[in-house]
Simulated assay, not measured.
Amino acid sequence: MGVDGSDRGEGAGQLLADGEAQISLRQAEIAAAADALRAGGLVLLPTETVYGLGADAANPAAVAAIFEAKGRPRFNPLIAHVADLETAARIAQLDDRAYALARAFWPGPLTIVAPIRDANAVCDLARAGLDTVAIRVPGHPVSHAVLEAFGGAVVAPSANRSGRPSPTTFADAVAETGDKAAAALDGGPCAVGLESTVVSVLEGQPRLLRPGAVTRVQLQQIVGPLAEADDDAKRSPGRLALHYAPDAPVRINAKAPEAGEAYLAFGGGAGGERVFNLSPTGDLAEAAANLFSFLRAADRTKPSAIAVAPIPEDGLGEAINDRLRRAAGFIG
């Protein structure tokens, strides 16, 4: 029951193709998940980023059940997941910049915030009362198959309880919110391991609202210079000051652990009973894929705190550091 994802449209498209044989063996499971969504139930879904807790985006009662299951503040908008660009264009008002981004990075870990076109397709509660919608086409074959079978938009925030590290394995997703789900699909470990990049395409320059696996440089290659989040920040999930946090306090940019601490290392040489090396070779993609699962593993050792080694800010490091600053209680 598993398949992975990718960080660009081309790679994700190949992944979808590679997963077709496996999906054909899971049609009953896919159909059951789509039926559960139509009935107003919640479904645990794998994506290439993290596991999501999904509901029919058009059903306010189902969306309310997500907020209740996660303990999520209702002013925090949800991302609508759809099967293809055509469906996205029926729901959101996509301009030339949005189409260029979608063609470059969908299916994949990019969310586009644009003016809402069909407010019935993504209900007011899912949009936190905003006149915009956050939308993406995921690149994981399992979630893609469910979306195709369902036929509409599915809001699917990370399947953790609000504020905790996002689940990147099926076991962690089930442990967090599995008791709230009418169906649960195992898609294996998430390949990206960080939530999607979020960029708004409204008036003025596009704005980077949340960094992710699609990097600032990649976005700029498509749409030119990016403005910072500013007032558009409210249009993106994942912007709370304390977010992605384990039970133990998090101490960032730590050169070494102190007594009683667990340590998330980065690069070679680190080892020990409570040491979890995000990437022995200093690979940022590997570190991103391991971040949330290692935070959880470190937390299970009941440390006095979790110290985290300095992570470079370039490329994918911007997204990793954003999550770490929020886990530590700082606004990134």
Results as ranks from 00 to 15, higher is better:
residue 15 L to S: 14
residue 298 A to L: 10
residue 278 L to A: 14
residue 283 D to E: 07
residue 94 L to M: 14
residue 259 A to M: 00
residue 33 A to G: 13
residue 130 L to T: 09
residue 47 T to N: 08
residue 186 D to W: 03
residue 256 A to S: 13
residue 93 Q to T: 15
residue 8 R to M: 08
residue 8 R to G: 13
residue 126 A to K: 06
residue 327 A to I: 04
residue 197 T to H: 00
residue 74 R to V: 15
residue 275 V to D: 01
residue 316 L to A: 08
residue 187 G to I: 06
residue 211 P to M: 13
residue 269 G to Q: 05
residue 32 A to V: 15
residue 90 R to G: 15
residue 46 P to W: 01
residue 237 P to G: 11
residue 164 R to S: 02
residue 33 A to T: 14
residue 193 G to K: 04
residue 247 D to A: 07
residue 15 L to N: 04
residue 208 L to P: 03
residue 226 L to T: 03
residue 246 P to I: 08
residue 128 A to C: 00
residue 196 S to N: 06
residue 204 G to L: 06
residue 235 R to V: 05
residue 315 G to V: 09
residue 307 A to P: 03
residue 235 R to D: 11
residue 197 T to A: 04
residue 239 R to C: 10
residue 287 A to D: 05
residue 196 S to G: 05
residue 142 V to T: 14
residue 261 E to H: 02
residue 6 S to K: 09
residue 162 S to W: 05
residue 231 D to M: 12
residue 213 A to M: 06
residue 282 G to S: 12
residue 113 V to K: 03
residue 3 V to Q: 11
residue 166 S to R: 01
residue 143 S to M: 12
residue 138 P to I: 06
residue 253 N to K: 08
residue 289 A to Q: 07
residue 6 S to T: 09
residue 173 A to F: 03
residue 147 L to Q: 08
residue 215 T to F: 00
residue 14 Q to T: 04
residue 89 A to M: 11
residue 180 K to R: 10
residue 42 L to K: 08
residue 223 V to Y: 02
residue 321 N to F: 04
